[in-house]
């Protein structure tokens, strides 16, 4: 019967399909597997594509899993089923190094690839906000010190002019990334924490209470979690010119005709101010490399050489065309020698 034989064929094909990988999974992997931050993804992918086209190695596979998710996968073990490199928009934590070590992942090489600025921006043509980090804290923190500095009160500010008279009487509305995002972590750390430090009342609180006061954003509608997609935030800003959005500098760079970045503490967010460190809200981006895989997976050393070549991460490299802010020459040299010596990451200094 035709149907029956077709079934037998399909089943046989299926069984072969199922048995093949069991044998292959033990063998080798000829491509590099990279996971990690969605902020580093646009840079890492460009380098991977160049590497794939310019050499005989296959193009590395890059998953966008978020910084924390990437480190978790990265630290899950040694062997071809685990990723070789993870990207992160924040530095690795000691707890993560420990959990790596527990799974046998001992040699982690830290490759700092450049800086990324976080910008507060709104639609072009609308009022251009000039903000300080303290003002942003007062606009977005859930609890703020009351006027006589006696205690914390729920944030009463409805419009920007409630915070400072020179700001416009426009309702506070800020679109930003959700807590799972590395951009959110960095924003909270670089803006909210810094804004916090100007209030002795909060600084004097005990550790956890201080962190809660500094890191908790409003939940009354003034701060809106707009999802991980930065393009979506840009589109929403166009539709709503009075709202501010929080996203990475590369999206401002690509959408200069649609959105304008707000100066923070009087410094404009642009390439030069982020590169020389004067713009206060910038963070380093990292790739973490499993040194135990360097000799196992073909092309690892060559890929790192591509990523850290002058043509890629140099002052006029293709990564800077994508909005990555290059490291100063001295830092680049330090990273290069760390790769060469396979120096393990050390959080101590």
């Amino acid at each position: 019967m035709a149907i029956l034989s077709a079934w037998a064929l399909a089943l046989a094909a299926t069984l072969t399909l199922l048995l093949m990988p069991a044998a292959q999974a033990q063998a080798t992997r000829d491509y590099i597997s990279i996971v990690g931050s969605s902020t580093v993804y646009p840079f890492s992918t460009v380098a991977a594509e160049r590497f794939g086209r310019g050499t005989d190695f296959p193009t590395p596979k890059i998953e966008s899993t978020g910084s924390g998710g990437g480190l978790k996968l990265f630290c899950s073990g040694v062997g071809i089923q685990h990723p070789d490199i993870t990207n992160s928009s924040r530095r690795i934590k000691q707890s993560e190094i420990d959990s790596c070590a527990k799974n046998g992942v001992n040699g982690i090489v830290e490759v700092k690839i450049g800086y990324d600025g976080i910008v507060l921006a709104n639609a072009k043509g609308a009022h251009r906000y000039q903000l300080t980090r303290q003002q942003v804290f007062l606009a977005l923190a859930r609890d703020i010190p009351d006027s006589d500095g006696a205690g914390l009160i729920p944030n009463p500010h409805k419009t920007w002019s409630d915070i400072a008279p020179n700001l416009p009487a426009i309702p506070i509305e800020v679109l930003g990334p959700p807590p799972t995002s590395g951009t959110r972590d960095a924003f909270v750390e670089l803006v909210m924490d810094a804004g916090c430090q100007s209030f002795p009342l909060i600084e004097n609180l005990a550790g956890n209470a201080r962190d809660a006061a500094c890191y908790t954003l409003r939940e009354d509608g003034a701060f809106i979690e707009a999802g991980e997609n930065d393009n979506l935030i840009v589109q929403k800003l166009e539709a709503n010119p009075t709202a501010l959005g929080i996203f990475g500098y590369s999206f401002l760079d690509q959408n200069q005709d649609k959105v304008q970045g707000s100066p923070i503490d009087g410094i404009e967010p642009n390439f030069d101010s982020i590169a020389d460190g004067s713009y206060p809200v910038s963070r380093p981006l990292f790739s973490y490399v499993k040194s135990m895989h360097m000799d196992e997976i073909p092309g690892m050393a060559e890929f790192l050489a591509e990523l850290t070549s002058e043509a890629a991460w140099g002052d006029f490299g293709y990564l800077s065309d994508r909005g990555l802010i290059p490291l100063p020459e001295s830092e680049r040299q330090a990273v290069l020698s760390a790769i060469k010596e396979r120096a393990h990451v050390n959080l101590a200094p």
Binding site: L17, M20, Q24, S33, T59, K61, E63, S64
Partner: peptide, 17 residues
């Protein structure tokens, strides 16, 4: 299962990423 990934090379079998 990790299929949200940047893939340049066209896969040639069900076992290529």
């Amino acid at each position: 299962i990790g299929m949200v990934a940047f893939i340049v090379d066209v896969p040639e079998s069900p076992l290529d990423p």
